[in-house]
Amino acid sequence: MNDTSGTIAESAADPFLDASREGRLLAAECRACLHLFLPFGPVCPRCWSINIGQRELSGAGEVATFTVYRQSYHPDFSVPYVLALIALVEGPRMISNVIDCAPELVRIGMPVTVRFVPRGDLVLPLFAPDSSPTRNPEPQGENP
């Protein structure tokens, strides 16, 4: 069941990945209510309008949550690596990876910016910290 091929093929037709190949981060934009959303789809999930366009995003966001994989589940992914939910400043959220950062320094709330990185036949929007994360790490909660 360690198979990503079907999903890659499926998403290859996505305008999101086409834009990513050109170094642009794209979201779907509802022409009726201006809601920005990901992934792309034929209807606005907020108002159900089918008048859907596109908008280029800044690529800035923050880590909403993350995990460091220590167990490898697929030969293409060597551990450790950081899987994260990125909250983009314009609103949409997406799963991606945090790169150019030691896994133990990743924090929720950490500001990140998109980096376009080739992976297989795709170019994926991954995210790197805005500044060196060692300088001002957000403290983890403490509770006795």
Binding site: M1, N2, D3, T7, I8, Y73, D76, Y81, I95
Partner: peptide, 17 residues
């Protein structure tokens, strides 16, 4: 350790992650 939909390209596998 199945891939989680389109996000498997980011290494999103399994229920544990």
């Amino acid at each position: 350790s199945y891939g989680r939909g389109a996000e498997a390209v980011f290494g999103f596998f399994g229920a544990t992650g």
